[in-house]
Amino acid sequence: MLEARNLTAFYEDFQALFGLDMTVLENQVIAVIGANGAGKTTSMRAITGLLPSSPGMVRWKGQDIGHLRADQIAALGIAMVPEGRQLFASLNVEENLIIGGRSGRSGVWNLSRVYELFPVLGERRHQAAASLSGGQQQMAAIGRALMSNPELILFDEISLGLAPIIIKQIYQVLPDIIGGGISAIVVEQDISKALAVADRVYCLSEGRIALEGETGSITREEIFHAYFGV
């Protein structure tokens, strides 16, 4: 479904990714793990078009999207829950969700489905997004991504900065979301959390893939080696 081939990315003159190959199949959950600065967020930004990539580097259902702008890629059904939630502060909760659905893609997700999944958002629909707690903001950010009825969701640092109980809740609803025929890439620093939901794991180190494989087929030792680069 999504295919990244020899993906590179630069921040001005600084090269952050060195030829990543990554594949996401339908209904598949991919975990991307790695230490800080390994290139996890950078690869998500490159796939979604926030960082420029080159033609041919990223294919979506066979179509080359490497040269497209972020808004064009979003319209094709790739959504992202960004690191740090990043809700729109001057919009209220409901407006944040509505703007998530503005691409007009049809599907099962709409306001009432999102409120069903996260009842607390329904209760606070008219509140400013900034007034929500961190966990509620993460729910709103997930809801906002779902509103576009995506076929692939990228969760960047899904549990970073959240309380353990909230992380547990988020992971509890994850199967409900992905079970609806949506593929996902979960960027996570917590290896065991990632392994629990993912079908396939990519471990990044210094902008390269240090290890990849089906969740069942690789051992923890291998992951630790790749993670810490020892």
């Binding site: 979604t48 078009g49 926030l50 702008r69 972020a70 808004d71 064009q72 979003a74 319209a75 959504a79 992202m80 960004p82 990043q86 729109f88 502060a89 001057s90 919009l91 407006e95 509505i98 703007i99 998530g100 503005r102 691409s103 906002r144 576009s148």
Partner: peptide, 24 residues
């Protein structure tokens, strides 16, 4: 209005607004 929402969202965070399909 939807246009106003797009204005405010882009003003808040143009990058994330692009992820919502808004062409900055």
């Amino acid at each position: 209005t939807a246009l106003g929402r797009a204005f405010r969202a882009t003003s808040d965070n143009a990058e994330i607004a692009q992820l919502m399909g808004l062409n900055k």
